[in-house]
Amino acid sequence: MTEQTVLIAGAGPVGILNALGLARAGISVTVLERGSEVVQSPRAMVYHWSVLDGLERLGLFDAAAARGFLKQGYTYRVHATGEQVSFGLDALEGRVAHPYNLHLGQNALVELALEELSAFPHAKVLWNTEVHSIDQDDNVVRVRTISDCDPLVLTAQWLIGADGARSTVRESVGIAFDGHTWPERFVATNIRIDLEAHGWPLTTMLIDDRYGAIISKIDTTNLWRFTYCEDEALPVETVLDRMPEYFGAVFPGIDDIELVAFSPYRMHQRAAATFRAGRVLLAGDAAHATNPTGGLGLTSGLFDTYVLYEALAAVIDGRVSDEVLDEYARLRREVFVDKVSPAASANKKLVYHSGKGAALDEAMAGLRQLSSDPDALFARLMFPKSLETPSLVAEVHA
Rank of each mutant, 00 (worst) to 15 (best):
S372W: 04
W127M: 07
L89H: 07
M205R: 11
M364W: 05
E116W: 06
A119N: 04
G179I: 07
L114W: 03
Y265V: 05
H397P: 00
Q84M: 14
S36N: 09
E232M: 15
G253H: 02
A91I: 14
S216W: 09
I257R: 12
W224K: 09
V236P: 05
V46F: 07
Y47S: 01
V169L: 00
T181Q: 15
W224L: 09
S167T: 03
P121N: 03
A394D: 15
E111W: 05
A162L: 04
V280L: 02
L52A: 09
R279E: 07
V38R: 05
L7P: 09
V351S: 00
R380F: 15
I193P: 01
T221N: 08
G35V: 04
A379L: 14
E323P: 00
T145E: 10
D163Q: 00
S321P: 03
R95L: 13
A65W: 11
T129H: 07
H79K: 15
D375L: 13
A358Y: 02
E115S: 15
S133D: 04
V46D: 11
G297Y: 05
G73Q: 13
G212S: 03
S372I: 15
A271T: 12
L117D: 02
V340K: 14
R319H: 15
G301R: 01
L154K: 04
Y265Q: 11
A11M: 06
T129R: 08
A63N: 05
Y309S: 06
T299G: 10
V393R: 05
H198P: 01
A283Y: 10
Y328M: 07
V187I: 15
S341Y: 08
P244F: 01
P264K: 02
T30Y: 03
A11W: 02
F186R: 04
F262T: 11
D138G: 02
I316A: 10
K339E: 04
V29L: 05
R210D: 02
R225S: 04
A261S: 03
L240R: 12
G355Q: 00
Y306K: 11
R270K: 13
L159V: 04
A289I: 12
L308I: 10
P151H: 02
H268Q: 08
A213K: 02
Y328L: 10
T75R: 14
P390V: 13
V131M: 03
G15N: 09
T2V: 14
A23K: 00
G59D: 05
D150Q: 14
V78L: 15
R225V: 04
I134H: 00
L89I: 12
E395W: 15
I316N: 08
Y47Q: 03
I214A: 04
I191P: 01
I207R: 00
